[in-house]
Amino acid sequence: MEILIPILSAAIRSGTPILYATLGEILTEKAGVLNLGLEGLMLLGAFSGFSATMVTGNPWVGLAAAVCVGMAVSALHAFLCVTMGANQVVSGLAITMFGTGMSALLGKAYVGETIRGLGILPVPLLAKVPLLGPVLFNHDPLVYLSYVLVGLTCWFISSTRWGLTLRAVGENPRAVDAAGLSVARLRYAYTMVGGGLAALGGAYLSVVYTQMWVEMMTAGRGWIAVALVIFGIWNPLRAAFGSYLFGGVGALQLRIQAAGTTVPAPLLLMLPYILTIVVLVGISVRKGKGILLGAPASLGQPFHREERD
């Protein structure tokens, strides 16, 4: 048990950036928009969060800046996919290319700098609970915020009027249009919320987790988040479980390396990517056997008001 606590606690921390991006993508995809630009959005968030924190000295300003950048860039995705009816897969790839390039270009000046990011803030009383306390409640505020967000999105999607509209936009946009709501406006909104959350996940990496900026520091976490949405069958709670599973693998792999193993580092680094494929195959095989498909029916399809289906 004593060995498990630090690993589980590390799993939560390294799973949190993936969790933010996954939650954001669930909201975006529920609205019927596929955003494959998460990797680029996370990198932009990591860079802008870091630089804004360095300039202002306030990590909260940094995180807010990251969210704004993420929303702005994903608005571009929404413009292409919703207004222009462009291919969502390719637009997402363009976002990733642009974000990767832009963060590296602007971030060049910040490589090697350090900041004072967010520190650990144990929750009073709860942190003292044996086992659960150190694993769940001995973290930074953003981890707690992610707990709240998981519950909030679950409740929002399944039990609110707005959540019902969100699901309807993804399942049957024509019905939403007929009900007098703007499909385009809703899709813009949820794409931007999703982009903001992805950028916040990226900023968590630079402002809280490592407190430094490195080019390409997300190392595929954005893509893992896209996979986790499918793994979580568009359910925030399952997505959280998936995120912590990946966080755990990441943390475990660091620990194995630190313990001085003979397994070469590149082979250990492959673990999360191999796990992603395994998990994806696992969920897809089970889907075939009659488990409810969670994918919104109109995911990836542009909505043209004037055309018949």
Binding site: G40, L76, F79, L80, M84, G85, A86, N87, V90, S91, L93, A94, I95, T96, M97, F98, G99, T100, G101, M102, A104, L105, K108, E215
Partner: peptide
């Protein structure tokens, strides 16, 4: 990385032009 940014911009514009 500036080339990568340009590549991203080209892809955006080609998509929009569709």
């Amino acid at each position: 990385s500036s080339v990568q940014v340009l590549q991203g911009l080209i892809l955006f514009c080609v998509l929009g032009a569709e």
